[in-house]
């Protein structure tokens, strides 16, 4: 099973204190940001800082992601020159409008991997979709590279493109979320949701997290460590769900032992998708348990 990505904590790339402490909050992934959280005059300094942190500090088994600047900004290739050599797990490409954006970025990554003697293909990628055009191209983006571990929604730029604003209910994001989650699942990669900016509204945050989990998303970006625990709670199967999943697996095992192809539980037939969902739930719970044990 692929790793859990329930939470991806944004860490501003020019903030040494946050870079130092990023691993203590328990997020599944840490995302060092060279893009929007870094002033244009500090791009070089942030690049040095993130490079040095990645090549010096230990973050245990956390997944390490770096959000670079987009290639059309004139900063993206310079970011890649540094960051690919620092060997993060994943590079997040922002403002992805088409498969071409991913392919161009991948070409640069591959060139740098070759130059640096890094095994080609070992740097993962994720693409953030942040425009109306990008949402319409979600499928071709999701299928554009074997390096992609997932695609993500970047809502702030997207709602600006739609000429609307974000609401607590997120009605303006329904189409984008639907497209992105479907495209990701069709390509067999993860769907990762956008940040919830109102850090003081925990109720709203939990409601949004619950909704996106229901939609099929695998996780969400967070901007404040406070959001990690409630997010993990939403994305971790409840005791009730687990008991049901175990009961389904037991019923299947019993049916198999009887040599019967048909299993039922409390009068309801258990078919293949039900088993697949139960298996996925149990795997998710197992992964979450492993992570918790590692952190202790």
């Amino acid at each position: 099973m692929s790793r859990l990505r329930r939470s991806m904590l944004f860490v501003p790339g020019n903030n040494p204190g946050m870079i130092r402490d990023a691993h203590i909050y328990g997020s599944d992934s840490i995302m060092f940001d060279l893009e929007d959280s870094v002033a244009i005059t500090e791009k070089d300094a942030a690049r040095f800082l993130v490079y040095k942190a990645l090549t010096t500090l230990r973050y245990g088994k956390k997944e390490l992601v770096v959000r670079i600047n987009d290639l059309s900004s004139g900063l993206g290739v310079a970011d890649l020159e540094a960051i690919v050599r620092a060997r993060p797990d994943v590079i997040r490409l922002p403002k992805t409008d088409s498969a071409k954006d991913v392919i161009e970025c991948e070409r640069e990554i591959e060139r740098i991997e070759r130059e640096a003697g890094i095994p080609v293909g070992t740097t993962g990628m994720m693409a953030a979709i942040e425009s109306a055009n990008g949402v319409l191209n979600a499928k071709e983006i999701a299928f554009s590279s074997k390096r992609l571990i997932g695609i993500a929604l970047g809502a702030e730029d997207y709602v600006t493109d739609l000429k609307t604003t974000r609401s607590p209910e997120g009605i303006e994001l329904m189409f984008a979320r639907g497209m992105i989650v479907n495209a990701a699942k069709a390509a067999g990669i993860m769907a990762l949701d956008t940040v919830y900016s109102d850090v003081n509204n925990e109720e709203g945050f939990i409601a949004e997290a619950t909704m996106i989990r229901k939609m099929g998303f695998d996780g969400k970006s967070v901007i404040n460590p406070r959001q990690i625990a409630p997010l993990h709670k939403v994305f971790t199967p409840s005791e009730k769900d687990l008991m049901k999943a175990h009961a389904i697996m037991d019923a299947i095992a019993e049916a198999n032992a009887r040599g019967s192809g048909v299993a039922s539980l409390k009068g309801k037939m258990i078919d293949k998708p039900v088993v697949a969902r139960a298996q996925y739930l149990l795997e998710m719970a197992e992964r979450a348990k492993t992570i918790t044990v590692e952190e202790v």
Binding site: L49, K52, R58, E81, R85, A116
Partner: peptide, 23 residues
């Protein structure tokens, strides 16, 4: 990191050398 950034700025250079490697 800060010494590198200050030095490159002071040298008006963007010929960064990234040595790579990770522990």
């Amino acid at each position: 990191a800060r010494t590198l950034a200050a030095a490159y700025r002071a040298a008006e250079s963007k010929d960064y050398v990234w040595n790579g490697g990770s522990i």
